[in-house]
Simulated assay, not measured.
Amino acid sequence: MADREALLATLVQELSIERERLREQLDGLGSASLATGEFDSNFADSSQVTAERGELEALRSSLEEQIKDVERALSKVPEGRFGVCELCSNEIAEERLEAMPTARYCIVCANTKSGHR
């Protein structure tokens, strides 16, 4: 049990660092540029501008989703629910948590939830 507690503590620390890294990346995208449409005036045509906006919005959305996942996982720490399956309340396997610290479900529930049997 002490090994699991140590692992969970390490993962929580790593998630906290990851949250800050993701926030910095998101801040680095320059939210004002995307919102106001300030793109490089040297773009050859509007299709390039559209493609660039699409890429930035997709990246922003991905980063926001990752931050949400990390924050969801970290919010479980105070109540002792980090590393516990949201469906069956069993502990999530350490190997799964090491691979995906934001895992919400044990492997059985994750497979059942996605339709696999």
Rank of each mutant, 00 (worst) to 15 (best):
M1P: 07
M1K: 10
A2H: 09
D3N: 08
D3M: 07
D3E: 13
D3A: 15
R4C: 07
E5I: 05
A6V: 06
A6E: 15
L7G: 09
L8T: 05
A9E: 14
V12G: 05
V12Y: 05
V12P: 10
Q13A: 13
S16Q: 14
I17M: 00
I17V: 14
I17E: 15
E18S: 11
R19E: 15
R21L: 08
R21V: 06
R23A: 01
E24T: 12
E24R: 10
E24G: 04
Q25T: 10
Q25H: 05
Q25Y: 00
Q25L: 07
Q25S: 09
L26M: 10
L26W: 00
D27N: 11
D27T: 01
D27L: 06
G28A: 06
S31N: 01
S31M: 03
A32T: 04
A32Y: 06
A32V: 04
L34I: 14
L34P: 01
A35I: 02
T36F: 00
G37M: 04
E38V: 04
F39D: 00
D40H: 08
D40S: 11
D40T: 03
D40Y: 07
N42R: 14
N42C: 00
A44K: 13
D45F: 01
S46T: 07
S47E: 14
Q48T: 07
A51Y: 00
A51I: 09
A51S: 12
A51V: 08
E52M: 14
E52G: 00
E52S: 10
E52A: 13
E52I: 08
R53C: 01
G54L: 07
G54V: 09
E55P: 00
E57P: 02
E57Y: 02
A58S: 14
L59A: 15
L59R: 15
R60P: 04
R60K: 15
S61D: 13
S62V: 05
S62F: 06
S62A: 14
L63A: 07
E64A: 14
E65Q: 13
E65I: 01
I67D: 00
I67R: 00
K68M: 07
E71M: 15
R72P: 01
R72C: 01
A73Y: 04
L74I: 12
L74T: 08
S75T: 14
S75D: 12
K76H: 12
K76P: 01
K76F: 01
K76M: 06
V77G: 09
V77M: 09
V77P: 11
P78S: 08
E79I: 13
E79R: 12
G80P: 10
R81G: 06
F82R: 08
G83K: 03
G83D: 05
V84G: 05
V84D: 06
C85L: 05
C85H: 00
C85F: 03
E86L: 10
L87V: 11
A93H: 12
E94G: 06
E95W: 06
E95D: 15
L97D: 04
L97E: 03
L97K: 15
E98H: 00
A99Y: 03
A99I: 08
M100V: 15
P101G: 06
T102M: 11
T102F: 09
A103R: 10
R104Y: 02
R104L: 10
Y105R: 15
I107M: 12
I107S: 11
V108P: 01
C109Q: 07
A110E: 13
T112F: 11
T112R: 11
K113I: 12
K113W: 03
S114P: 01
G115C: 08
G115L: 04
H116F: 10
